[in-house]
Design a protein around this nucleic acid. Structure first.
Lengths: 137, 137
DNA sequence: TTCTCTGCAAACGCTTTGCACGGAT
DNA sequence: ATCCGTGCAAAGCGTTTGCAGAGAA
């Protein structure tokens, strides 16, 4: 948790008005490494904000992604995941339990051929397989 | 194009019966670098096979992916793309024209930290941005 | 016949949109 | 009074499924 005041400041710095829903959603996202889906965010915050709708979560996430306060991950055919860590790193999704894990990787050191003349905005590295817990059971 | 006979042999070697639809779909996939979607495959083959349904394309692609004759790419929120090249390489999607390009990359040389104990099945490297043609217009 | 392949239509799941209410400025 | 955030319900879109007819063995 970054602290509510800092969360509000982050929103303000991107010219996003800090409404209750936005603050709580961003605060939750910054304080977890769960890579939550819209469904997970909604389920998590509903006890605190009983009127919160999924529509609001969708719209808020769109705002946060556009403002580069969150990363949108489409790892497979199922729902989108969100990551409050916008720095360069890779993602691993377990095929059995569905959990998403971060891992460190030096994307700048990656040598590629065939991208001469391309302007690269975004780099995504997605691995999948089985996580340690699911490997051993 | 690999040639119809080789296409049939590829299917047979994976114990997939070489029906007309399957042969044509795989043959098209092997002969293009377009990374077609289901819609694109259907549109392309409909003139040759006027009765072809999208359901058949979906089911055939599922078979081919399971048999490792094709790769399934979920690059973003829109439709899935397919790649007949199942070797290791990266994919770049242009944000403007939507085209998907292959590029070479040495995924084995990639150093990662935080994946100790994980069993890795699949590695996907997705870049996005603007392709040379869209850069200059 | 028996088994598989195919195609239509409906169902499905995630996401987006239209619209109206409500709160803040 | 105006603007913006929110929530409901419906629509949208890619994909999957149920089932029946067609076709191969």
């Amino acid at each position: 948790m970054a602290g509510i005041k800092q969360t509000i400041e982050m929103l303000r710095s991107k010219n996003i008005r800090p409404s209750m829903a936005r603050i709580r959603i961003l605060d939750y996202l910054l304080g977890t490494t769960d890579h939550p889906t819209v469904e997970m965010i909604h389920r998590k915050l509903l006890p605190e904000i009983p009127t919160l709708s999924k529509t609001t979560v969708y719209k808020t996430m769109e705002l946060l992604v556009e403002a580069d306060l969150a990363r949108l991950l489409h790892m497979d055919e199922s729902e989108a995941h969100f990551d409050g860590n916008v720095g360069d790193h890779g993602h691993f999704k377990c095929k059995r339990c569905g959990q998403v894990f971060d891992f460190e990787v030096d994307l700048d050191a990656l040598k590629t051929r065939g991208l001469e003349g391309f302007s690269i905005d975004e780099k995504n590295l997605f691995f999948s397989g089985f996580c340690p817990r699911c490997c051993s059971s």
